[in-house]
Design a binder for these strands. Structure first.
Lengths: 353, 353
DNA sequence: CTGTTAGCGCATTCAC
DNA sequence: GTGAATGCGCTAACAG
């Protein structure tokens, strides 16, 4: 026991450690450790010493040093989330849903944005693994994804979201692309559209592939040939560029099905730029129902994916995987819902049949 | 699990440590450490051994264990960012700017969202301090903020952004509220508006206080009394609620100055709901120029704060503070810019003078 | 130039 | 019920 009169309360000098608490309480470090880890409940510690220790600990303002603990236990209680773009509102909703579940479970969330660039992804993931994250939520998977393969090879728990990969061994929470695309296509067909084009997302991304395939199959079943083009990124600019090309090549187009809302926004711009109007001349359907979809002009008809729920499911699945790494991988499909708004309408009366 | 008969090359069994590399290369652990930390450059290591070590390291797939390193060095290379709402696009831009600077500096970013609730802030900050973050970017400051005071008391490097606090000892990067408000008010005055109301943000937040004071002073200088009401949160719903009240109490209103874009969006809704039109009957000016401000209907006239730049400056300032904790605090003001769009127009001809 | 030594703060196995 | 001893993986003095 040191000078317990004044010497104690030197705030801000150095964070108190277990040893400080032990010395002050007149017990051994390990006893303090046991108490502060709730092992006192197991009847292993005297009521009296427990109280004394807790008392000293709070008086000294003791806080666990999670670094030391992590080094000892091998767990950091930190998980990483890799997204294509933090500036994307759809992603933000997912982040929120995941964050809430994680914090409730005592975990912290590290976030990285890759700009949808595999090279970025590699360095970001390296950083996350560098801080010894206990697991990763990976939202930038490519069909053939070496970065992801590396994560899996290191036995780091990982759950994919939004996009699947060619790895059967990893869990995923994905939108039901087929169901969503069907809703959108049937909506357009029901309105009377027969000249529908598809603005797809980036190549080698599962949602792009799935939505495109669904689009083509659904139309083919009605004897219609689906026209499409892929964007390089999920941005308004790319939606604009691709739609403009499609409209030039296929001026008979009366509807655009976009692989996501940002592409849809770009499509609407392109339609305007071509001197046409949405939805009077050309209808547009998006995907995701990102926030503010209802406030654009025109408001966006889109396939809603519940972002908050999706994020929550990703986080829960990851937590389960961390708790039991041996559990078989699961793939969850999130059921979409069609939200009809102002960007779709019946096609104009045909001038040339 | 396979049997570890062969010993060495059981891939995926356990991450290789410095010791593994040292043994394999036939040198001592500390030598490996020196090489892998770039101290070889100081001419302290033989060309030959360096190559051999690097060789073995990469062959074994060695990665730094940052936990162990952090325990030793006392630095984690992780910084935390606390924002009111990850789902806010304005915040997302800031996060992006900060993230880029941080990653370039070898740091990782932990993100937490508090829902603008001080109780949340407390637990989120505790989590960040728990992972021994090297510093914090704090975007949820209140004027009198006990959570922030706690951070400062623990000598954790911190930089405020967006909102200031009553603590002189901490650096901050803030929008120039006075200049921004002046631009907005003068724009409205120039258009001929004389009945202007202000929808402020939450109480006890510096931007709310500053913008309100600027609003009142600027109008007073012209002999006009500024009417205002405060919202409880920076949301569309609150903007709607507050604006509706203001319009009921002051039907002569021809312009609304909102303390941020989301409030402005709500204001526009309220104007519509009251049977009036924006901008024909009532003009609206926002603050921030958040993404998509140009795509709403009407598009938003607003005071732009360069989000990416602000985020970058926050991160740089924090990095500098971490590097030199003794440096005197700085306050940076980010200069705003008025973006005139479709939500402002000349006021309608007065019916009753 | 490289090896030796000594912890960082903690959790945990083993004694008593 | 509690103390002693050990080591997680690494860096940084200090020797040589």
């Amino acid at each position: 026991m040191s000078s317990s009169v004044v010497g104690d309360d030197t705030r801000g000098s150095r964070a108190p450690t277990l040893r400080d608490v032990a010395r002050e309480a007149g017990v051994h470090v390990s006893t303090v450790s046991r108490v502060l880890n709730g092992q006192a409940a197991a009847g292993r510690i005297t009521q009296d010493t427990e109280e004394r220790i807790r008392d000293v600990a709070s008086r000294l303002g003791y806080r666990h040093n999670n670094i030391a603990r992590a080094l000892r236990t091998g767990r950091t209680l930190v998980v990483g989330m890799v997204v294509p773009d933090v500036g994307n509102l759809y992603q933000a909703g997912i982040t929120r849903g995941a964050g809430d579940v994680l914090y409730a479970g005592g975990y912290s969330l590290i976030l990285a944005s890759t700009d949808d660039d595999p090279a970025h992804a590699e360095s970001q993931v390296a950083a996350m693994l560098g801080v010894q994250a206990d697991g990763l939520m990976y939202g930038v998977a490519r069909e053939d994804d070496p970065v992801l393969a590396g994560i899996v090879a290191q036995d780091v728990p990982v759950v994919l979201f939004n996009r699947a990969a060619d790895l059967p061994a990893v869990s995923a929470v994905l939108p039901d692309d087929l169901a969503g695309t069907r809703m959108a296509v049937e909506h357009l067909l029901a309105l009377g559209h027969r000249h529908i084009v598809h603005v797809g997302g980036p190549e080698a991304v599962s949602s792009t592939v799935n939505r495109l395939a669904a689009f083509e199959n659904l139309l083919q079943a009605r004897g219609i040939t689906g026209i499409h083009r892929l964007a390089r990124r999920h941005t308004e600019e790319e939606g604009h560029r691709v739609t403009r090309q499609l409209l030039e090549e296929h001026p008979e187009t009366t509807a655009v099905l976009a692989a996501n809302d940002r592409l849809a926004l770009g499509a609407i711009d392109a339609i305007r730029d071509s001197g046409r109007s949405c939805p009077d001349d050309v209808s547009v359907v998006g995907f995701n129902d990102m926030p503010y979809s209802d406030r654009f002009s025109p408001s966006l008809t889109t396939v809603r994916i519940s972002q908050y729920e999706l994020g929550g499911r990703v986080a829960r699945l990851l937590l389960e995987t961390i708790a039991d790494p041996g559990r078989p991988p699961e793939t969850h499909l999130v059921t979409p819902e069609l939200i009809v708004r102002g960007s779709t309408a019946v096609p104009p009366a045909e001038t040339s049949t």
